[in-house]
């Protein structure tokens, strides 16, 4: 197997509640994700997927444990980590008053890309997502699907080795979602390490090489789809997921 580009060891995130208790959003998570792999994080709303990804992107600080991205510690080398990832979630927005092209160019520049390389790279991603026709339009005028494409283009313009995609098809119509999934598959072909979070089973079945099922912040199952089938004696991912979550509830 290729080298692990993302590893977490005992990664935890704890919030406090009003009564002085603690909410363990992520609890001792051990994961590793490799180059050329799409690693699915599957869980219900509030399972801890987004918190995990935000910790990996350095936006949040872990309460305990550690994690590395491309060999950089997320706490001591946050800047290097951010340079190595492309992050996309439902909350990462676009600058509405910039055009699609300006948006992608701006983030390329912020990632330190040289002008000449940036220019060709911007054309490349515009072409890849078939948004070159709309490149001159302000982001506020784009449709939801187009905005999501621009957002993905923004996340990959600096060609990062690791992509962290948090529910990237959320809010997209069928065609736009299909385009996004096709693109994620292309990323694998390009040797990228993709951490893909969703609660849509079909996406995971179609895309992911390995799957981590998270519930209540804890890892409930980890492996390829076949390995999970064997361990739970179930065929469909939905049944596997339900079993693992129920097991936790019991």
């Amino acid at each position: 197997m290729s080298e692990a580009l993302v590893t977490t060891i005992g990664l935890s995130k704890v919030y406090s509640d009003h009564a002085g208790g603690q909410i363990r959003a992520v609890d001792s998570l051990d994961l590793s994700c490799h180059a050329g792999e799409i690693f699915g994080l599957l869980g219900l709303n509030g399972a801890g997927k987004t918190t995990t990804m935000r910790m990996l992107s350095t936006a949040l600080t872990p309460t305990a444990g550690r994690a590395e991205v491309c060999g950089h510690d997320i706490q001591t080398a946050a800047r290097e980590v951010r340079a190595s990832i492309g992050f996309l979630s439902g909350t990462t927005g676009l600058y509405h008053r910039l055009t699609a092209r300006e948006m992608i160019e701006t983030f390329g520049r912020l990632h330190g890309m040289e002008a000449q390389h940036l220019k060709s790279r911007v054309e490349e991603v515009l072409d890849l997502f078939e948004i070159d026709k709309y490149a001159g339009m302000r982001c506020e005028k784009l449709s939801t699907g187009m905005k999501q494409k621009v957002n993905i283009a923004r996340a990959i313009v600096h060609d990062p080795p690791v992509l962290i995609l948090d529910e990237p098809t959320s809010g997209l119509d069928v065609l736009a979602a299909a385009t996004t999934l096709e693109f994620v598959q292309k990323l694998r072909e390009l040797g990228k390490c993709v951490l893909y979070s969703t609660h849509i089973m079909s996406e995971v079945e179609r895309l992911c090489d390995r799957i981590a099922i998270i519930h209540g912040g804890r890892l409930r199952g980890l492996g390829t789809l076949d390995e999970l089938r064997v361990s739970t004696n179930r065929h469909y991912l939905e049944d596997i997921f339900r079993d693992l979550v129920r097991e936790d509830a019991a």
């Binding site: 992107s57 936006a59 946050a78 800047r79 290097e80 951010r82 340079a83 990832i85 992050f87 979630s89 909350t91 990462t92 927005g93 676009l94 600058y95 509405h96 983030f107 912020l110 990632h111 330190g112 923004r154």
Partner: peptide, 14 residues
Amino acid sequence: ERGTLETLFLTPFN
């Protein structure tokens, strides 16, 4: 409000 601050925080700048 527009979510662009989080996008900006993902750049290598502190």
